[in-house]
Design a protein around this nucleic acid. Structure first.
Lengths: 155, 155
DNA sequence: AATTCACTGCGCAACCTGTACAGTTGAAGC
DNA sequence: GCTTCAACTGTACAGGTTGCGCAGTGAATT
């Protein structure tokens, strides 16, 4: 799916996103055109979605994070609910899931009280029948894909 | 926590990460030095963690995503468990949580069978007593912070 | 009134990007 | 063994961009 050079390139960009194509080529020991071609291809294939800024909600004042499991009314399906959830800024992420619940959202709030406000908004969404929330106390492993990239290198 | 210019800057960079400082300044209608200073300050304050490549596990062949709730043995605490989980590449994210479980991980696998392999590795981690997995079937809202950034603008 | 701070507008040298092209290499197929 | 193809290398050029510094302005603070 990916070769060693790709993986090293992604690793490099992950650790020092500032360096640019030319510097990458120097550190990887390949020609600049190669790095450029690899990057283009990785983006075309969707392996790299982009280089957007990685914003920390906590630094914006949203210091509490939580996961909310939703049960929704079967009639109407997931999409209308997802759309309404998407309209809430504090809803960071929404998945449909297997198991007891129907959907799982990641949300943030400025405080536990503020979280309640967000949850109330979610409960108010038409089609949501029940919610169950767990608060994230700490995050020993923050979202990462580098190890995966390295594991995905074809031998 | 953030002002309107900051928010517009982040928005711009989120939607077109390629554009660079000078182009930002043109589009925002401010001087280049201002954009540069704002960016520096946003990064210093930790609002922007970085500009790393956003890698899509699915494009790497890891097409199944899941959330695993762990119950761990009380003796020893969370950290040793988190460390061992961090050693598994397919573990994308780990939180400690309130509620019935003790930890919540996001994991990926190449298939449902492969997911089983990953879960087995997690169960094998010393201190893990029980796990409960839900598979993410779809992701109507992918991780995002832009709405939050806009909501966080101080008036 | 003096001070501080952020922003503007300017300039400069150095560097990087996008792009192109010819030559080399290595693997795959005939 | 020879051809073919894709990928990589090395090079070149124009144009844009960055990093940096500096003087001036305006608003808010003291």
């Amino acid at each position: 799916m990916i070769d060693d050079l790709d993986a090293r390139l992604i690793g490099l960009l992950t650790e020092e996103p500032r360096i640019g194509v030319l510097e990458c080529s120097r550190r990887l020991g390949v020609a600049r055109g190669t790095v450029q071609a690899r990057l283009d291809r990785l983006q075309e294939r969707g392996v790299i979605r982009g280089f957007g800024p990685d914003v920390d909600p906590a630094a914006l004042g949203y210091q509490v994070a939580a996961f909310v499991t939703l049960e929704i009314r079967q009639a109407g399906g997931h999409d209308p609910v997802a759309d309404r959830l998407a309209a809430i800024p504090e809803v960071i992420e929404v998945h449909t899931i297997t198991g007891g619940g129907d959907m799982l959202c990641r949300i943030v709030g400025r405080s536990n009280q503020d979280l309640q406000r967000v949850i109330d908004q979610i409960v108010d969404v038409e089609g949501v029948q029940r919610t169950s929330t767990v608060i994230a106390l700490a995050t020993p492993v923050r979202q990462r894909t580098l190890p995966l990239v390295r594991a995905a290198v074809r031998p």
